[in-house]
Design a protein around this nucleic acid. Structure first.
Lengths: 281, 281
DNA sequence: GGCCACCCATACCTGCTGGGTATGTTTCCA
DNA sequence: TGGAAACATACCCAGCAGGTATGGGTGGCC
């Protein structure tokens, strides 16, 4: 199977419409129909059901969609990482991805310590939205990531634990509870009349329903400062205290572990040194 | 990048010789040279260094070799799993891979329990050599595996723990210690004059050196029965006692956890049911 | 109910490119 | 210094990807 065929199939499976998929791919519809037909013939059965008003996936099609996405990510990763390694104008570099606004202190220490290591290479920092680290590692846009368990998933990655900490409630500073020395989860369940928030789900999308889509922590802080939300975050978030918000420890909140993670087949010396530096902090 | 180009590059990178690689690929040498050149041009730099007596990999080439292998595994997995899902003659089925001779009792219970579930599908059991489960999951020859921590790795996989147990020494039945009620690791270090054994390393190869290459447990049991070896195995191995060997508990051996593992992007109902059945055993 | 619009498949043509053969260039070795 | 080994280059051909035109079937709408 060629990657082109996989890209074609994914386009059709996502659009559920040959003509739209063809437009997205920048080709005409007939070659696309033909390519999918050939794919179906080679794989031994139908992947799509053509109802004259569009297209639906068969069971086999659903299998191929999931597998093809993973395979295309791997191919993209190969291309991106190789292109970065060709010394294409610049010296070799690592790309580290982390949620914007999280673990700033840890990240600063890590970058300083690594830069002081002999033989260290340049590290580009890519600050992304919530839950985007995994995809960026998988498709090669990044080499290594800071993740926060249990919120993020380390599926498919190697990782080392760096820091485990408790959590604090982040409240509007006008809230009456900000003077309390501590809270419990049960207290927080009683906070009335704040609108629900929608966090990204594993696929990167947002569940349906009311409330704002939370894409990054800056946005979340702003909502809290406006009195429209509250949340629970790791203690280290206190270091990046924003205007208009206050924090109170939550005694019985689950602990959060910050980990450094990388694709399991990575074998570069630079990456190993960075991980080693991180675990020694 | 097309799959074909990746296969070509991997062939050259493994053979370190264009003509041999071309022969392996079943094409002539010139098209292969051309394909690699184009790949290098597109990726922005050399992947190979041509020393007139062969070829060596550049740093970028080493990166691409690792990434390309992972990507090709993913593409192969897509093809195999889809082909199995096309109902190509037979009903849908899951392929479960486990080390031959390990966890027989657990496996029997699992298969019986799963078969009794409503909506369960056929399960093909693939008994493989030591350490081959990971590759088989990665390239789609299997859907789900039984692994034994800490010997096997769950890198890149989702997993659920099934059973944690101590270990026993497996000795020739003629050995004087088989009458002892228990042993310690320190005792075993003193067993004299047994030849070393070579276990497969993570890549699937064997380290250099003397001694037999251990590929599966049947072979290992036979060596022990012949008085040529001993080993330490999980307690459940007692259930498949062979002729000429005896077991003695080892009190301070590390515990072994049997886990059920599957690729992290798998989302089929049949697989989820099988995992759920396994965790309820 | 018949017409139309929509959507995918088929037919056919064309140009690009993957692959083959022949040959060149460099280097190492005898 | 001649020759062998190994990768690159030149050139040709065939197959296939992609385009246009059109067919066929189905659902909706007047």
């Amino acid at each position: 199977m060629e990657t082109r065929e996989l890209r074609y199939f994914v386009a059709v499976a996502e659009e559920l419409h040959f003509s739209r998929a063809a437009a997205r791919l920048g080709i005409a519809q007939p070659p696309l129909s033909r390519a999918i037909s050939r794919l179906e013939r080679r794989l031994g059965g139908p992947l799509l059901e053509r109802n004259s008003r569009g297209v639906t996936l068969t069971d086999a099609g659903r299998v191929l969609l999931a597998e093809a996405r993973a395979a295309l990510d791997a191919v993209d990763a190969a291309e991106r990482r190789t292109r970065r390694a060709t010394g294409d104008g610049a010296e070799p570099a690592l790309v580290l991805v982390s949620k914007a606004g999280a673990s700033t202190e840890l990240l600063t220490k890590l970058l300083d310590a690594y830069a002081a290591e002999p033989g260290s290479v340049k590290v580009e920092v890519d600050l992304c939205g919530i839950g985007e680290q995994g995809p960026r590692l998988r498709d090669g846009r990044a080499d290594i990531a800071l993740l926060h368990l249990p919120f993020d998933s380390v599926d498919g990655l190697d990782s080392e634990d760096l820091l485990t900490e408790g959590q604090v409630a982040v409240l509007p500073s006008s809230h009456p509870w900000v003077t309390r020395p501590q809270l419990r989860l049960a207290d927080l369940e009683d906070i009335p009349s704040l609108p629900p928030m929608r966090w990204p789900s594993a696929g990167g999308g947002f569940p349906d329903g009311p409330g704002p889509e939370i894409r990054d922590l800056a946005q979340l802080y702003q909502l809290i400062g406006l009195g429209r939300a509250y949340t629970i975050l790791p203690e280290s978030a206190r270091a990046e205290q924003q205007h208009g918000v206050a924090t109170v420890p939550v005694l019985d909140a689950p602990e959060v572990t910050t980990v450094i993670a990388w694709p399991q087949h990575s074998r570069s010396l630079a990456l190993a040194t960075l991980v080693q530096t991180a675990t020694r902090l």
